[in-house]
Each structure stands twice: as C-alpha cells, then as structure tokens.
Amino acid sequence: MSIMTDVSPSAARRRSVPRFVWVIAAIVALYLVAGVITPSFATFDNMLVIVRAASITGIVAIGMSYVTISGNLFALSAAALGAFLAVIFALAVGHLGFAAGLAATLLVAILAGMAQGLSISVVGNPIITTLAFSTVFRGLAALFSGNSIVRIDSDIALALGTGRPLGVPTQSWAFIALALVSWALIRRARLGRLLVLSGANPQTAIASGLNVRLATVVAFVALSVGVAIMAVFTVSQFSQAKADLFAGYDFDYIAAVLVGGIALRGGQGSPLQAALGAILIALLQNFMLLNGFTAGLRMTVVGGLVLLATGAFHLLQRRLR
C-alpha cells in the first residue's frame, strides 16, 4: 500500500469533448455533404427554411429536455396536450380576445404540467403516466372542440403566426430565444440546478435535502409551457385548431432530445442540445424531402439516426469511463 495516487490511468485524458460539439459537427458535416449533392441545399434561404422547420418541433423538444434532464425519461403526452391547448387557445381567443386567450392557455398548460408531475411522483413511471395523460388530453381536445374546427379571427394572432421580423419567422425567433433562456436556466438558476441534481441521482438529492418531487413538477411545467408556445404559434398561423392536431409527433420531440445527445439517465445535458438535435433532424428531413424520399423512407432514416446517435453516445460514454 505504498502508492496512493488518485489519478487513475484514464483520468489524464478525460478532458472529454462536450456532446453538443459532436452534434454541431454532425450538422456541419451533413450540411456540407448535402450541399455538394443537392445544389439548392446550401443556400442562405434554405438554411432559414431549415431553422424554420426545426422551430416548432424544437420548441417542444427544448421543453422535453427538462423532463429528460430531471430523470423522468420523456413524456408521451406532448402532442395530445398540444392539441388540447390549441383548442383552449382558439376558444379563449374567440370569446375573450388574444391577451386573455394567451393567459388562459398558459394557465391551463401550467396546471396540466403540475398534474402530470404530481401524478408521476405518485405512480413512479413517467412513461405509463404520460401515456394515460395523452389519451385524457386528446379526449378533452375532442370534447372542447366538439370534433369540429375551431376558428379564430384575430389580427394579433395572425401577425404572431405569420410575421417575419428582420426576415426571420417569429417561430424561429421564439425557438432561438427559448433555447438560450433554457440553457441559462438549467446552468444558472437554482431550480435548474435542482432539476439537474435530481436527475443525476434522485437518492442523493433526497439525502441532500432537495425536493425531488418539486423538480419533477417543474420539469413537466416547463414542457407544458413549451407545448403551449407551439400550440399558440400553430393556431395563430392557421387561425384554427382541431382535436387531431400534432397527432403522431411525440416521436419527433423525443428524437430531437436523443439525437442531441441528452442522456436518458438524466442529470446530464442541456436544452441547447435538444435544440441542436431538432435542427439536425430538420436538416436531414429537408435533404430527403428535396431529393424526393418517400415518407416511409424518411421515417426510417430518422429512426435510424436516433438509433445511431444513442448508440454512438453510449459508446462515447463507455470509452471515456
């Protein structure tokens, strides 16, 4: 027992490359390769188009990253909640005007997030709980809309949904702002730290006197607010809401989180990674769309990308261990 050093052999080269750097590298590589193959791809206009396409999915993916980071895997209720909130927003704007409608939507979103977070701390399994909530939300959307299209006629909403300040769509501004704010919140806010620590090791968090239940509730409220923003933008853009909006989109949100390299175990990663993941997927989708890939093939490729990304990040983790 003579040598008592703490430096294990691999520790010296453990200055690991942050995961988001890999995602950015993948985005740049794909952009260059696709630009060579498809000339119309590597233009500034198309770059804007891609960010625009990533925006709506990305806003929810950023919210989803809170859930993943807090150690609750992911929610399967985001799309259904989106439809419900869209209907609520459309109805409320119709009856109360834009500002009140926005406030009502956010209020319902926060309540929906709290309900899910609290249920998960009772049930314990986020997948099953949010699956159940998903049918509840979809059902409520159908009930409230009476299975018909709810139209709104609001100039403010239309401006919000179709405006392009400085030539960039409002959705993209919101996406970028949300990514930066979320990044700062997770890094710097006390609640963000609570979320990260609760996800990193819930037992240690409890043993350190932290409120893990609060972390779960906060994460789901953050997701619900993201979903509300998506719903408000979508309803504003098309001036209408339906109960079957966003059907089948849940995988897209989760895919962005996974492709962004946020560890499913929780306690690691940042919302910025989810945003980058959404951009990477939008980039790939755009490339395939322009090259006439069928929808089935596009789905397969995106699914493959998710597998590839999770596998690669897993290997990366192991190598660094």
């Binding site: 188009v49 059907a247 769309l289």
Partner: peptide
C-alpha cells in the same frame, strides 16, 4: 416535377412541406 408526401392532413404539415419545396424549386 415531384410528388412529395406529407406526414399528415392538416395545415401544419402542409406548411412544413410547402415551405421547403417552394424555395428549393424557386
């Protein structure tokens, strides 16, 4: 020129696809 399938039947999907193929075939 091209036949592009959407992933749905509603406005959001239609916008997503159209907003990509229109500038690409400007």
């Amino acid at each position: 020129l091209t036949v592009v399938p959407t992933a749905g039947f509603l406005e959001d999907e239609g916008y997503k696809v159209a907003a990509q193929i229109i500038p690409a075939n400007k």
